[in-house]
Amino acid sequence: MKPLQRLLAAALLAGLAGTAQAQFGDLLRQLPIPGAGNILNTPAAPGGAAAAGDLLQMLAQSVDNIDEPREIEIGRQLAAVLLGSKPLHSDANLQRYVNRLGRWLSLQSERPHLPWTFGVLDDAGFNAFAAPGGYIFVTKGLVDRVDEAELAGILAHEITHVTARHHLKALAAKARSGIATQLIASQVRSNIVGNAISAQMLALGRDLYTSGLDRADEHDADRQGVTLAARAGFDPYGLPSVLQQLRTAAPDNPLFTLTLSTHPPAQQRLEVLEAAMGNRLDALSGKPSVPIATRLRAR
């Protein structure tokens, strides 16, 4: 694996640097946090950068100890884990489209004020990821296999993980179990993020994204995600349509392996959603399918 500093610099350059790559503009250029700098040097809380070890200690005690600035800082560290695994896709038009779609959905959520940031990872797999504080990524392989309503349903599902603080709760459980100490005993910090990323946090993040969230959290994100997508004006059956794809995906298909292994069985998710939705959202369904390629050509 490449050094974290080089990975972050390359992955985040699009949204932060004043170079030709600034065409990514609103992708990772941050909505301002009062008193904060950019993503590379923002303190976790007023008064200076909080050590990742301190954040882990607070998580182990209680998620209630994590205020919003610290939540955003943890999200930035986990976003570094994701961007360290796969780079952002080079299609600026696609990045803008997904970012605008995601931000429109986030405005309908319970926490519209978060510095919501959306991006497409250059990966052929069918995956989506969220991190605390409003960082959400989908893979190019996923975007290529869905239409706009389906993508909206996926993003709404991930937005719900953020608004409900599902990842923070999962990290807290891992921190309390001592898994961080088991994964790595010493902290190694990188100057690229103001000495705020530790090897422990990186190890916890990797473990979280390979093991997945609690099944109850996934079902909750499905139910609330459908409602959020409908509230934003999209067909509420977009997410169930995606689950139908997953239901028929071969378990040994490497493009779907991670998604299938970190989520409840798609058939179970469909059954839980059907029981929750009934026919209450049928009046909002039946809208024409809009291919993402059509939206991109129109820009």
Rank of each mutant, 00 (worst) to 15 (best):
Q5P: 04
Q5H: 08
R6T: 15
R6N: 14
L7H: 02
L8P: 00
L8K: 00
A9Y: 02
A9D: 03
A10D: 11
A10Y: 05
A10G: 07
A11D: 04
A11R: 02
A11P: 03
A11Q: 11
A11E: 05
A11M: 09
A11V: 07
A11I: 08
L13T: 02
L13F: 06
L13N: 06
L13Y: 07
A14M: 10
A14Q: 12
A14P: 06
A14L: 14
A14I: 13
G15I: 00
A17F: 09
A17N: 14
A17C: 15
A17L: 13
G18I: 04
G18L: 06
G18F: 02
T19C: 11
T19G: 07
T19N: 14
A20F: 00
A20K: 01
A20Q: 02
Q23G: 07
Q23T: 06
F24A: 03
F24Y: 13
G25W: 08
G25H: 14
D26V: 10
L28V: 05
R29S: 05
Q30V: 11
L31Y: 07
L31Q: 11
L31A: 15
L31H: 09
P32T: 13
P32E: 13
P32S: 09
I33Y: 00
I33G: 01
I33F: 02
P34C: 10
G35P: 08
A36M: 11
N38F: 06
N38A: 12
I39V: 11
L40F: 11
L40P: 01
